[in-house]
């Protein structure tokens, strides 16, 4: 309950932030952090709480993004409808991937690679079929109005994103405090033991991937409305998949606030390295990489692990079973 209070207080504080922050740059930075936190939290449901590492969250993200864009551009359907449809279709993709993998008991690196392969298949398809604009991509017409889910000011985008992210965090809080969550973590820690206790691992993992896909798809919808342009490598390329997993792993797997810590840390790191190093191409990314490696060397359980060890609290997630491949 303390966590829930903290969560609500945090998002309430964030909600009034635009009143005090008039800098568009700071608003943009906060939006990008929140967006990364949403991507990361979506991944965290399946990867952190469920122990199923996906390298292909772009499959969900891209489906959400393309759904909202295709509906608008090709069929003239309102993006608010598209947002719902995007989330649903992303869940459908998640259901398909989950069903075809969990049914056969794929896990560990096999699961990771197969999700990557699904994302690639979708990337190639979106590059070939006409309704996604294929390689030319899709440009959503610039027409700011609340009805079109396009805003002139960053604050409105921020509130939209904040609402979605809040639901995602609330869902994860519920996972951490519900029977379903307990079952999910039991499956993560030891699938056979969980089965012996009467848990149906397939059902539990399916629920996790559906939720994970939903929020990833919603993040995709937001991206499409914020930048108004999509092409196959933006939607289904590997950089979204990598960002999705980087954020919660850095912040702390299977923890409620981990993705938020991770998103803040990674964006701060990237902003700082870019401003410190200057303009030699690649130099800031080298520093970024070095700092990333150093963080892992000295804070093996992610930032929330670090924070917990500083405050002397027991980490929420136990050590994951070693993967036997």
């Amino acid at each position: 309950m303390r966590q829930l209070a903290l969560l609500v207080a945090l998002f309430a504080a964030l909600a009034v932030a635009p009143i005090f922050i008039h800098s568009a740059v700071w608003m943009n930075l906060i939006i990008m952090v929140l967006y990364a936190a949403l991507l990361g939290q979506a991944w965290n449901i399946l990867g952190g709480y469920g122990g199923q590492f996906s390298f292909g969250h772009a499959a969900f993200f891209g489906t959400g993004a393309y759904t909202i864009a295709v509906l608008q551009v090709q069929l003239g359907i309102n993006p608010w409808v598209g947002l719902v449809a995007g989330g649903m279709l992303a869940m459908l993709v998640a259901a398909f991937i989950g069903f075809s993998t969990f049914r056969y008991g794929l896990k560990g690196s096999y699961f990771a690679l197969i999700t990557l392969a699904f994302a690639e298949v979708l990337r190639i398809l979106s590059n070939s079929v006409p309704f996604t604009g294929a390689g030319v991509g899709l440009l959503i017409e610039l027409n700011p109005s609340a009805a079109n889910m396009q805003f002139v000011d960053k604050a409105s985008y921020f509130w939209l994103l904040l609402a979605i992210t809040f639901i995602a965090f609330l869902t994860v809080w519920w996972i951490g405090n519900s029977r379903f969550g307990a079952q999910l973590m039991a499956v993560r820690d030891n699938e056979d033991a969980a089965r012996a206790l009467g848990v149906d691992p397939f059902k539990v993992k399916m629920s996790a991937i559906l939720l994970s896909g939903l929020f990833s798809g919603l993040a995709g919808c937001f991206y499409a409305q914020y930048f108004l342009y999509l092409d196959p490598s933006i939607a289904y390329g590997s950089s979204v998949s990598v960002e999705s997993l980087l954020v919660p792993i850095v912040g702390g797997l299977g923890t409620l606030f981990g993705p938020l810590f991770g998103a803040i840390a990674l964006h701060t790191l990237s902003e700082v390295t870019r401003s410190v190093i200057g303009d030699l191409p690649g130099a800031s990314l080298v520093l970024y990489g070095i700092l990333l490696v150093l963080v892992i060397l000295f804070s093996p359980r992610g930032l929330s692990g670090l924070i917990n060890s500083l405050t002397g609290r027991v980490p929420a997630s136990k050590k994951k079973e070693e993967n036997n491949g």
């Binding site: 590492f53 990598v242 850095v250 690649g282 080298v286 990489g289 990333l292 490696v293 994951k320």
Partner: peptide, 28 residues
Amino acid sequence: TKASHGRDENILLVTLGLAIIIENLALM
């Protein structure tokens, strides 16, 4: 080895970090 601390996700991150470092050193 040092970065892994016995956890797969750390190895993932550290090799990702190394890839970023090596590629951008090459770019520089």
